[in-house]
């Protein structure tokens, strides 16, 4: 079986993927959570104990992930649903997974040729921080670090070459 190879257009546009990923993330938060993300002035450390992941397959193979604290994910869910954070229960993982799904979809739709040539998996949410992601092939990672309500949020795109 042959794997679909990355198109020349995709390879050429890779230099812009970082800014595009940041725009894709910002748009999702502004449109769905009515919230502006900010750029940290200094490298920030914070709790990152929940991760949402969406797989990409086709012309681009990889994993999009978003990490933040459980508390931040709860606040995201409350903003999406328009309810108090205390009232968020099992919807937290659903909402956080959907955010990752929308970021992945929004990102791929911004890249010429990728919209039709790349499919997304359903989201998966992992809780806890004591784990490592080990890509099984040569890969490059794209990472965007932003602040959501002054708390760190890390968006990564692990691309399998």
């Amino acid at each position: 079986m042959t794997m679909p190879s990355e198109s020349p257009t995709l390879t050429a546009s890779r230099a812009n993927w970082g800014p595009m990923l940041e725009v894709a993330v910002r748009e999702v938060f502004e449109l769905m959570l009515s919230c502006k993300l900010t750029v940290p002035e200094n490298p920030t450390n914070g709790i990152l104990d929940i991760t949402a992941m969406v797989g990409l397959a086709g012309q681009l193979c990889g994993v999009m992930s978003i990490q933040c604290s459980h508390q931040s994910a709860g606040l995201m869910a409350s903003k999406m649903l328009g309810v108090e954070p205390e009232k968020i229960g099992p919807e937290l993982c659903d909402a956080f997974g959907e955010i990752c799904n929308m970021v992945a979809g929004n990102f791929k739709n911004k890249i010429a040729g990728l919209s039709d040539g790349c499919l997304l998996s359903v989201p998966t949410v992992i809780t806890g921080s004591d784990y490592s992601l080990h890509p099984v092939s040569d890969s490059a990672a794209l990472e965007v670090r932003l602040l959501f309500e002054n708390k760190p949020i890390v968006i990564s795109l692990q691309v399998h070459s």
């Binding site: 748009e27 769905m32 992945a104 979809g105 791929k108 739709n109 919209s115 039709d116 997304l120």
Partner: peptide, 23 residues
């Protein structure tokens, strides 16, 4: 979230009347 042109065309040809992309 599926912004694929092919999916849009397919959905409309099957009878969908509109298409909104998330977000």
């Amino acid at each position: 979230t599926e912004g694929s042109e092919a999916h849009v065309v397919q959905a409309l040809s099957l009878g969908a009347r509109g298409y909104i992309r998330k977000p």
